[in-house]
Simulated assay, not measured.
Amino acid sequence: MSRSPYSSPAVSETGDPLLLTPGPLTTSRTVKAAMVHDWGSRDANFIEINRSVLKRLAAIANGGDEWVTVPMQGSGTFAVEAMLTTFVPADGEVLVLINGAYGKRAKRILEIAGRKTVVHETPEDTPPDLAQVEALLASRPSITHVFTVHCETTAGILNPIARIGALAARYGKGYLVDSMSAFGALPVDVRAMHIDAVAASSNKCIEGVPGLGFVICRRDALARTQGNATTLVLDLHDQSSNIEKTSQYRFTPPTHVIVAFHQALDEFDAEGGVAGRGARYRNNCRILLDGMRALGFQPLLPDALQAPIIVTFHMPDDPRFVFQRFYDNLKARGYVIYPGKLTVADSFRIGCIGRIGEREMRAALAAIGEVLEEMGITGDVAKTA
């Protein structure tokens, strides 16, 4: 008899494994279907679809006419690199707030671009120390920009982007945010949070497919970036200018991805936008945490720091628990999870986002219970190394 109280595994719409990851993630059948047609990038219908996508993204961030969405072909990191290397001038200096892999990646991008950095780093399970952040801003007038990650999926931690933005504004610094894994599910208000530019991508909480990053920019801040970019393809100023003048991308756009993203935005709006999407994800996260605790697993983060995007769990030190076997047996049942990425603890991660809801989360918990039984683990697995 199964040790799990949950229902039997659900079947995805298309029979594909459910991706319990931070993206790429499980998409709806209708988003997939939007990609079966071919579109010319100069076709009037495609141009109108693209225009609608860009306008709607700025609106999600509460950006009015003073903000513009600049698309960037490629994954989310393309958008982050475009943002950093366009907005930070050659003589700029960036205070990089790091508590995971994506803050470290931003620092590496800036170093390769020859931009100076100042680092405030905390462990992956710890938010920035805002008193220390303010002390750095007060003592180093050479700092021109502050960079942070909204939801650092290394641990799943939610960083206080509004409070960081208030500090950046108080000291007259530009403010750049990587909201890759949070945009669309957690509120981002570029006006209230004093954000100059925020980067995200198509394949996260809007539930599109990979291939398009974007940066929502304050127009007057973007206007001052001409000549800053360190590469041709990642120049946001040039990309934005060309789209405004000609309605065309400078280089071939991912047409199928954009049309699917348009469909995903329709479904996002139908669900109630950020409020509706965020509510479903929060419910998914609650079910996951309650169920995994009932099975004996220990989450890394306290609830107050946990974003409803992806949850990190400590790896049990039971010798019968072999992560690769656990992963493979879950995948065989139709659930793909993520290995850990921490330096502070051995761990694995389970995502809460994508076209999944309560039924799928409870079915995943049922599968986890079955796999534990197969591994001979029938007691509390919470004991960790």
Rank of each mutant, 00 (worst) to 15 (best):
A260C: 03
F261K: 04
F261I: 01
H262V: 00
H262R: 13
H262Y: 13
A264R: 13
A264D: 00
D266Y: 10
F268G: 01
F268M: 09
F268E: 00
A270T: 03
V274P: 06
A275W: 05
A275L: 10
G276H: 12
G278I: 08
G278T: 07
A279F: 08
A279H: 09
R280D: 00
N283H: 12
N284P: 02
N284L: 05
N284T: 01
N284W: 01
C285T: 14
R286W: 04
R286V: 01
R286E: 08
I287M: 05
I287S: 04
I287N: 03
L288Q: 07
L289H: 05
M292V: 01
M292K: 12
A294Q: 14
A294W: 12
L295E: 04
L295K: 12
G296E: 02
F297Q: 08
F297I: 04
Q298T: 15
Q298S: 11
L300D: 06
L300T: 01
L301T: 04
P302S: 08
P302T: 06
P302I: 05
D303M: 11
A304C: 09
A304N: 10
Q306T: 11
Q306C: 08
A307D: 00
P308N: 08
P308E: 00
I309A: 04
I310C: 06
V311S: 15
V311Y: 13
F313G: 00
P316Y: 05
D317E: 12
R320F: 05
R320C: 01
F321W: 13
V322N: 15
